[in-house]
């Protein structure tokens, strides 16, 4: 344990640096905190003067689940955090199945789901879970933009492609093997797709599994022979959504009911929501939140009430 003088000097310098930085930090931090408190009390005073005293929200919210609901909630969370600086919200995906099981296990505050809890295949759904519908969505069949030979499919043709009866694009005047992509078994988008399209059969075992709407879109956008299904909120110019029985999957057509495939999107809490959870859900349901729903390409609740 013999230290050279160089090492000693170095060590001393580091210690000094830590000390100086530490003191400096505490000083700035306490300064900052007191400034915040002053500002806060000013705002509080103003509020009470106006007779409109609102209690400041503080805390953390973790939200996870359906990648269909994710874009809505991500945007809502960002706005909500701007309006309530004391609240920190973290939003992540994982799929509807994950959202339901994680909120049920208490890992997260709010689960996002595009599956209805009552129609869900889980053998015994947690009775404590409380879903709140926040928007509607639809599912579109998508192909690569350069796929020129198919534009309109019947329900039966979709089922035959996805159960493996039709395996070649030559059936539609093109050429080459059809690459069928599906979603992981917990997906709400898959559940909705199966409910409307796969009435008599199962999706072929040869279909490749993708784990999110984003991955599905990227895959179809890069595979000229691919076909898959996607939440309408994700559709952009990188993929080509197909007409079903002659009806395009546009928001207008879903609204009028001409495009029949639609489903509810939910936020789920375990037991009655806490104050902060309730505040966030109310925000999503407010006119501001519903405007975000529409901006993101989904369908606001009021259109169907």
């Amino acid at each position: 344990m013999s230290w050279s003088s160089l090492q000693k000097t170095f060590f001393a310098l580091i210690l000094l640096a830590i000390l100086v930085l530490g003191v400096h930090n505490t000083w700035t931090m306490s300064n900052l905190t007191s400034t915040v408190y002053t500002m806060q009390s000013t705002i509080d005073n103003l509020n009470s003067m106006l007779g409109n005293y609102t209690q400041r929200l503080e805390g953390y919210l973790t939200i996870a689940g359906s990648t269909t609901v994710l874009p809505i909630i991500q945007t809502c969370a960002n706005l909500f955090m701007q309006e309530n600086p004391g609240v920190v919200i973290s939003v992540s995906g994982g799929g509807s199945g994950h959202g339901i099981s994680a909120v049920s296990a208490g890992y997260i505050n709010i689960g996002m789901s595009s599956k209805n809890l009552t129609t869900e295949q889980i053998t015994d759904p947690d009775p404590d879970l409380q879903p709140v519908a926040i928007a509607l969505d639809s599912v579109a069949i998508i192909v690569h933009p350069t796929n020129g030979f198919v534009d309109d499919l019947t329900l039966e043709e979709v089922e035959m492609i996805f159960n493996g009866t039709i395996t070649d694009w030559s059936h539609f005047g093109g050429s080459g093997e059809i690459h069928v992509y599906t979603r992981e078994a917990g997906s709400g988008t898959l559940e909705c797709f199966e409910k409307f399209f796969m009435k008599h059969s199962d999706i072929t075992g040869a279909a490749s599994e993708k784990t999110s709407n984003g991955e599905m879109k990227a895959t179809i956008a890069s595979d000229p022979a691919g076909i898959g299904f996607l939440s309408v909120g994700y559709i952009d110019e990188t993929v080509n959504p197909l007409k079903i029985d002659g009806v395009e999957p546009t928001v207008a057509n879903i609204k009028t009911g001409a495009y029949k495939i639609k489903r509810w999107l939910f936020l789920i809490t375990k037991g009655p929501p806490t104050k902060i959870e309730q505040a966030f859900i109310d925000f999503v349901l407010s006119s501001q939140g519903q405007e975000i729903v529409e901006q993101q390409g989904y369908l606001p609740l009021e259109w169907f009430q």
Binding site: G94, H98, S101, A105, A185, G186, S208
Partner: peptide
């Protein structure tokens, strides 16, 4: 041909498995 291996099965299924 495509394939599914032990590790990818765990990774793909884990997100929605019921516990």
């Amino acid at each position: 041909d495509r394939a599914k291996v032990l590790t990818s099965t765990i990774l793909l299924d884990w997100s929605y498995v019921e516990i």
